[in-house]
Write a protein that binds this DNA or RNA. Sequence first.
DNA 1: TTTACTGCAAAGTGTTTGCAGCGAT
DNA 2: ATCGCTGCAAACACTTTGCAGTAAA
Lengths: 155, 155
Amino acid sequence: MECPRVRLTTKSNNGKRSSASASAPALGQRATRQRKLIYDILRSTEDHLDAESLYRKARDIDSRVSLSTVYRTIALLKESDLVDELVFEDDRRCYEFRKEVGHHHIRCLSCGEIIEFECDCLEKMRARLKQELGFEVEALKIDISGYCRKCSASR
Amino acid sequence: MECPRVRLTTKSNNGKRSSASASAPALGQRATRQRKLIYDILRSTEDHLDAESLYRKARDIDSRVSLSTVYRTIALLKESDLVDELVFEDDRRCYEFRKEVGHHHIRCLSCGEIIEFECDCLEKMRARLKQELGFEVEALKIDISGYCRKCSASR
DNA sequence: TTTACTGCAAAGTGTTTGCAGCGAT
DNA sequence: ATCGCTGCAAACACTTTGCAGTAAA
């Protein structure tokens, strides 16, 4: 039973923020200060931020950013497949820089920690859906909530 | 590779509405007209309704139902594990009467049809998460969007 | 100089809530 | 008769939008 092997996703970036601010993303038309900032924050953080915290982080660095721009930029980045949106049970929507396909999230209902993992069984399921139902999968998302080792111990 | 076998869930109910209105559910304290009505609609429909359409359906039968009551009743039914909430990519939330565990949904982005299927690999994944990460899964939900056979053909 | 992008405030969406009256028990 | 439930409207949280000004090209 090889399929549902769970393995932690290797963290793609172990510093706080990658030093070089890198090239501006192909966001839309113009690489504005605000867009670069928001993009940089998302690209370099380990956290899964919601719109509000992303806004606060951005504003701490440069006050000339508005919440609307954060939303507009998120939409842009989603369209360009540069960031993914995670929607959890309780409606919280977080954003993260696009990583490898096939990595998923579990969230601890008690401490809020988000753990990432990979499981190739989902990719296999996608193939099966195509084969057996003729269904062409565009988006496959799995949301798992529960209690992490630490929190289930202290319950 | 037995694991990600996809199979269509057998429809639990093939009539339009089951004839007998059945016993009142253990909803909370009181089995009111409104609660019975909402419960009955959810129990007997094949569709996955959102709050609004559930409200319209209910109001068509008995005008003395309000949208707030629909929301309140849905919350109640969710708490009692009598209905499940499905949250799709585009935010639409639908409700369905609780069926067997381990059945999931895929939705056609073109025609909106919701197809149900089972896949035991997710249950196995749950076991693995427990075993390997010590993570106690409370809720496991998978949302798949894409194009059904018919719609992918006509694209 | 052009016109895409931004901040602001206002509008919109889906859901929840406070309250006085209603009705299941 | 009690007090849990309801309808209503108002509040709510989050997101989107119109517009006049700003700035990237």
